[in-house]
Design a binder for these strands. Structure first.
Lengths: 340, 340
DNA sequence: CCATAGCTTGTTATCGATAACAAGAGCAGT
DNA sequence: ACTGCTCTTGTTATCGATAACAAGCTATGG
């Protein structure tokens, strides 16, 4: 065995030497710059391959000012939805030659948002995708976001110049109107946490739909997206004899709610119909299978990357452009809802 | 409005000028280097703050050779387990001052592994965490892995110097022995896909437990971790009158299996007992709640980062060390299993 | 036959930080 | 008072690439 030293990775200089050209020519040859003699290019490529040369992204980033990294900031809930979003982002980013660095924060305070964004900016990302449901922010956050192009999913963060949106209000309406069509008149809502903008939007959609159909609007019950919180809500709802329908803000909470309701001796959908939002993979395997409004998170992640890519690439070429991509919600009827 | 130009972020030189010192002193002051006069340090910090200075991680990485980034490579399934793992990794990494870049691959071919690892290495990560269930690899993959310290979760990849492991065989044994204690003698297994090392280990554990108790070993049924594949397996198992117990390799497949079995008119756990592995959040909200063996993915992610940190920091100081952290599986009994 | 243009390649400067070395100040010990 | 040490700060070189400029060479046309 001879490789003793930590054998520094080969640099462009090494390749240049082996190929008998200058470093700059190597750079040009490997970047597929047009004005390079074919045989020179080939020689360079051969030399590079034989040395196992790999371009140093750090040096490249330093001089070009572009890191080809995009940052994603999200809440660190391990929910299905977040994961799906991130997978979508990663795939589209990889396809477009970006790598993704990923920061999760544990709470919605401006403090922790600043921290997370700060880490991303310090890292030198070219752009940021915020997948955070924050309602408001601090000036420090705005500063951070103004330093780097950013795209917001769900939430119109200040300075988040473009937005990929899912019309939460419309999704809620689809869910509620389905229940109404089934003949329900007493439709409760189990909402997400108060400080999430999605929760607000879904509550508003639910309320508006009820009002338009001149149905009574019961008070909403708050959960925290977890199945456990849905279970607690179910314990409350299940005891109300006149509650025959619930619109639940997430599939996971619906799982919890259904469990509680069944434990109280009532049946879904015979006694209580349940619709939710998300359509996670397990939704079809709940008992009964969940009627739900599909939110295509992976696709939303991909859209976010596409927007960001345009923002980064075209250098304020097309200013107005499509400011927002709206994804249309789709109702998926399974067996957790039934006619009265 | 006066800020017309893209106002280049302030550099160390700017701070130095404002504070009336040299760039090197700024570097020292901000890095909390000991030999700096207190008032100088303060002056530098004030200047930095007033300019909104942020250290350029790229330049720093170039000269120090350390990027403080760790790379994670994983399969792009949007399963709960992967997400939980990643959240654990990200949290621990953030706590230790690393940022995380994240690559997912869509299949287990050596080709795509090479591609993913290549992206990570080219990105300049300091270390890599492989969370891939690959059985074997190519020499190219080994080259890549030998360039950068790496830690493997689950799978002992070649050159993955340290391993965070979960004793899949033991987990399987716990599950099977629980069924045996319940009086079952005909215990089937719905396994994960053939090319996953976890699947193999769970199959082996299941088989060994049965053999030790001198019980018959039926052929295993393969799934692909998805609830859908569990459902298909359930359609097969549910038709066998003498099958009274199933050990399913993941909670998600168990959801599917239970649905199928119920559709065939048999009850869980009265007719068929089901144990699985993972303990995802929804496991407790299945109907019936799943008896399962808990696999603490978040903790495993954190361990991986700790190992990697040691590997990166101590510079071959403590060579042997704890080569592997083994996490102990824990059986969680709920209601999907019952005595015969 | 010279001028102009285009192609190919090399040279030098630069990105923003830190490492390594150097230099001046202050202080103690002989 | 001189030597030698420590503390503080500054200077210069460097990491690995690319941008900008420069130079040599080959066509092409008048």
């Amino acid at each position: 065995m001879k490789e003793q030293k930590p054998h520094r990775a080969p640099s462009m200089r090494d390749v240049a030497q082996l190929a008998g050209v200058s470093a700059q020519t190597v750079s040009r040859a490997l970047s597929d710059h047009p004005n390079v003699q074919p045989e020179t290019r080939q020689a360079v490529k051969d030399a590079a391959k034989s040395l196992g040369y790999r371009r140093n992204a750090t040096a490249r980033a330093l001089v070009t000012g572009k890191s080809n990294m995009i940052g994603v900031i999200t809440l660190s809930t391990s929910s299905y939805s977040r994961m799906t979003l991130i997978v979508g982002i990663e795939r589209e980013a990889a396809a477009r030659g970006y790598s993704v660095t990923f920061v999760s924060i544990t709470n919605l305070s401006a403090r922790s948002l600043e921290d997370g964004l700060g880490r991303l900016v310090a890292q030198g990302v070219d752009g940021i995708i915020t997948a955070i449901p924050l309602q408001d922010s601090s000036t420090e956050v705005e500063n951070l976001l103004s330093e780097v192009p950013s795209v917001a999913i769900d939430t119109p963060l200040p300075a988040g110049e473009q937005v990929v949106g899912f019309d939460q209000g419309h999704a809620a309406r689809l869910a509620v109107e389905h229940l109404i069509e089934c003949g329900h008149t007493n439709i409760w809502h189990v909402a997400g946490p108060k400080d999430w903008i999605e929760s607000e939007a879904r509550i508003a959609g639910w309320r508006r739909a009820l009002e338009e159909h001149q149905l009574p609007v019961p008070p909403e019950i708050y959960g925290d997206w977890s199945a456990e919180s849905g279970y607690r809500a179910g314990l409350i709802l299940g005891r109300m004899p006149d509650a025959t329908a619930a619109f639940v803000a997430s599939d996971e909470m619906a799982f919890g709610l259904i469990k509680a309701v069944k434990e109280l001796g009532r049946c879904v959908p015979e006694d209580i119909s349940v619709v939710s939002i998300d359509d996670i993979e397990l939704a079809a395997y709940c008992a009964p299978p969940l009627t739900t409004v599909r939110q295509p998170l992976e696709e939303m992640g991909r859209h976010a990357v596409r927007h960001l890519d345009v923002l980064l690439g075209d250098e304020e070429a097309l200013e107005p452009q499509a400011k927002t991509t709206f994804i249309v919600p789709e109702l998926i009827v399974r067996s957790s809802t039934a006619a009265r």
